[in-house]
Amino acid sequence: MTRAKQQSGSLANIPDAILEQAFEWAVVLGSGVSRDADRDAFAAWLDSDPLHRTAWGRVQLVEQEFAAPRLDAAVGRVALAKADAKRRKKRRWTTGTGGLLTVLLAVVLVFGEPFHWQADYRTATGEQLHLTLPHGGTLWLNSKSVVDIETEGARTLVHLRRGEILLDSSKVPAAIKPQVVTAHGRFVPIGTRFVVARRDGVSELAVIDGRVRAEAHKGSTADIIAAGRGWRLDETGAGILPASGLEPGAWVDGVIEADNAPLSAVLDALAGYRYGWLHYESDIAALRVTGVFRLDDTDSALNALTATLPIRIERTTPFWVRVTHNTNP
């Protein structure tokens, strides 16, 4: 396949996925507000595969095009915008039919699907986002999450693509309460506050207040789930989600609240707030944990766990952490 690609004239040899990672790193490192943790994670990425280095080198070639030492940035920027605007104006005049088509398309879009718009939001590692939805209701995004928000008339659909959200729709009139959609089903609130998460091919629901109607895409299952209960939807259907021992949505307050929770659940939640890899051995997964752990300092949280549990933390680098059974405490 690589050969075919090369013959067609591409530079080839770097999978698109790796190239995308290189773009993402260039975005992070060029933010002007990147942190030591970002740079360390980047260094780990760069070292983990020779192709990463090649991809990074190419992205740097692109970046170098913008390093024009004698150029006054403001003058350059304005001149480029001016030249572009003139070109656009000219194109508009010279491509009359194209312009007309655009207008027709716009008419179809405006009149065909009234008041339809879509926006997507995402959070990086360790980041949370708090949004007010177009027709009321409050949405929180946990770390590493992606949603598309779509409105059709007075209805708001929150498509959860990845990660975890908390939706509070208690103050929104019943008829226009925002709904949550995942690959596995739809969650329709009945006066409420609830959490939806996507993990490993499953959509998980935890209801905090009120009730939620859960409808699986597959089959015709629909159930009404009450506060304090959990529900799961996947490819095969729906069923009760056993309590994890973690307080649902506690992350909105910046913490994990564990009440006799398995250690694996706590570590998985902490991993969502860390760069790099957090591994643990299966023989410690079922150890029980009770306590409150802060998400803004996951290293302290890990250390706190060693105080009460027979476990040991091995930090090869800050981004490569293993949790193992401590046989001689």
Partner: peptide, 16 residues
């Protein structure tokens, strides 16, 4: 274009 130039030519941070 503008966002990218503000970042790469002017060196402005993303929040700004």
């Amino acid at each position: 274009r503008q966002a990218f130039l503000l970042s790469r030519l002017d060196g402005m941070s993303y929040p700004t």
